[in-house]
Amino acid sequence: MGKIQLRNLTKSFGSVTIIPSIDLDIDDGEFVVFVGPSGCGKSTLLRLIAGLESATSGNILIDGRDVTIEAPARRKLAMVFQSYALYPHMTVAQNIAFPLKMAGENPDDINRKVKDAARVLNLTHHLERRPGQLSGGQRQRVAIGRAIVRQPAAFLFDEPLSNLDAELRSTMRLEISELHQHLKRTMIYVTHDQVEAMTMADRIVVLNAGTIEQVGSPLELYRNPRNLFVAGFIGSPKMNFLKGQAADKRKAATIGVRPEHIGISGTLGEWQGRVGAAEHLGSDTFLHVHTDHGTINVRANGEIDAARGDMVYLTPETDKVHKFDGEGKAFG
């Protein structure tokens, strides 16, 4: 009960087209992440599905039912916002109960569902507090609680962890993943943070300028990016792109090599260069090496003691080199 289909969906604001045309199928129970740079249309797409924006053309189907012109509340979706969007004048219990109250459920059922949601989200002891008295993580849990009590067909998350600090973000990331396992409901999650995308998604939808660049599992996108954009966007640190002689040798317009797929030696290798900066993180060492082909970033093990100014030799792992044609499409 949560299959979402987008058919030729477009969105324009006046003369500005944000989403030219999108077709996408999201299966029931799937965790799909929309990822892309700022302004790529990922939040707009989510808001179109939620009904907070009206589509310029095309259709949105939920479980086969066309909901394109239906009001948000009738789509049986729940949404969690970046700013939590809690009602500040209501207690936690009232916030969670609100959608049920609007649906006209009886008070006993509402009370039971609120308590169940609070137990799942560790909010039992905060039910009588107001949002202003809670931490960021607790607020986001209340927002999730308000979403789960409705038992929606699908959950929509619009950058829900962006306002949290790094530690809380990783905790909440796990909690949302566990919640997905527990509820087994469709979840669509918008983020610009690819760590969130890679760790949480069943499938990632990479968006650029309102169009889908590639859809696939996190490892599929990492291992087989369809084009230069996806190759550059997925993976951290970013993939190195080389043109000229290094690409010509492999009969490609551009080649791409991930920093973790480059071997480093002090005596021998394909590309010679000098270390511009060395970042020792303990577990890893990031080296920025200036070569004749441009600056190449290398992710080496934490034991390496290369320092700024050292001459090094780099060799890409042959089967991990991505080749792109003149239009930026991957081949070979």
Partner: peptide
Amino acid sequence: PKEIDEAAEIDGAVGWQRFRY
């Protein structure tokens, strides 16, 4: 905040209900 209005819309609060609550 716009998001609060939008959250209310998704939660099913429309018209008089949205104003009241």
